[in-house]
């Protein structure tokens, strides 16, 4: 009998605890993001596709066209080219294409770059129905970023 009564009281108590938890949750702020209307900021360490880094002094890419990233890429998805402009010592980048369809975002290219010229971007709005949309011209992208 005493077990029965303690069962009833204990049960009622646990039910009240449950109700109080949900009541508290009810008044907490909503965590849902209304995605297409409110575009969230990606966190700093998000691994999007790679992008070129601009040299702040010259305004040109830091890349010196050594080709280390192209050689280190296990999927061979980076292709780049460069030539020496008239009267300059260093090569300048003329083409930097990333084939994102085969990229696995491993980051080996970034590690192999001795000049800190590439990094992961924050880009995530990448949905498309055409394969060609995933061949990124990173040089053009850098220029467009202004």
């Amino acid at each position: 009998m005493s077990e029965y009564i303690s069962d009833v009281i204990g049960g009622s108590k646990s039910l009240l605890v449950g109700l109080s938890i949900t009541a508290r949750e009810f008044f907490k702020p909503v965590v849902t993001e209304q995605y297409p209307w409110v575009v969230p900021e990606m966190t700093e360490r998000f691994r999007g596709h790679i992008e070129l880094i601009r040299d702040e002094k010259t305004g040109k890419p830091k890349c010196i066209v050594c080709g280390m990233c192209m050689r280190s890429c296990p999927s061979g998805c980076i292709s780049l080219a460069g030539k020496k402009p008239e009267g300059e010592k260093k090569k300048a980048l003329t083409k930097y294409h990333l084939d994102f369809t085969t990229c696995s975002l491993c980051g080996t290219c970034i590690e192999s770059c001795n000049f800190g010229a590439i990094q992961f971007s924050n880009e995530y709005n990448l949905a498309s129905t055409r394969k060609e949309d995933y061949i990124f011209d990173l040089l053009k992208r850098l220029e467009e970023q202004g």
Binding site: T22, V30, V31, T32, Q34
Partner: peptide, 10 residues
Amino acid sequence: KGAGRIQRRT
């Protein structure tokens, strides 16, 4: 709506 708020959705 109520279910959403309790689960912190909208």
